[in-house]
Amino acid sequence: MAKPQVVLPSNLRGHELQIALKYFEDAGQLTPREWKTALSTFDALRKGVVMVGQRRITFQQVYDRYVDFPYADSFIAQLMELPDLNASAETLQRETSFEVLTALEQQGFYQEESEGSEYLAAYCLYWWTSFARGYRFELEVLRDLAASDIEFIAHDVRTRTGRLSPYDLVVLKQRGDIKNTTYFLHLARALPSSCDFYVTRLFDSRVRRYLPVVIMTEAAWRILDGDVPTASLETVADFFPRPVKFTSKDRSFIALPYDLWKARVKKRQEKGVQS
């Protein structure tokens, strides 16, 4: 393969690229503002271009052709075979991530002589990790809902077409999305949000692990329960894990722990309201 030439999006500045690499070095050191910059940089990098001879492909196309297409279906199929996601999914994700990086190198997309190719590798690894974490979380939630006898209809995660559905599941006739934390934050950058509720996860320092949470529109919440206290985005964490209302992009949302949402849903379904 001829030495690829990488052209980064012209709207990205040096400090934004540095913050993207800082995410890989130690995301724990990112400030909230740097997190926002990292998220927008990983979005913007999709427009980067790789030129190999006469061929010109975007970072997004490299990801689709050389990462998503060869690895995604097989990764999901292997995840679905795991009896205990908590015990083995992390190892599977790490093994596949190493394979992705090696494949990029072997295809010539990540090499010493190609200035800027580290950002293509970073772009692919970032989105692959988001994908892998996202579907590990989604399968955990779907398994838990089934085990809790919650009635729901879920999209088919085994195929790319199924995964690209506009929502992941329907519960109580409400459309929901299950999104890993950073994926949810990417979604929050885009306008408008289209689902009635989102299941995401936040790290609980007290128990030292991620716990699922639900963020739902005010209208969706009204079906489940009544009034809740209101907070600004700056103070909402002070109220959590109690249900709390906040406003984002001129829309009101309620944040509450997943177990509490599940209990409310179960109560409604026992009264005869179906999905």
Binding site: A121, R133, T181, L185, E234, A237, S248
Partner: peptide, 29 residues
Amino acid sequence: MFHDFIQRDEEQITPDLFFQILAEIEREH
């Protein structure tokens, strides 16, 4: 850097950090 990242545990986004990032995104607009 990439190898360490793959082997490292997931970053810890607490409710406090999560809503601070959301507030930053809100300000961006």
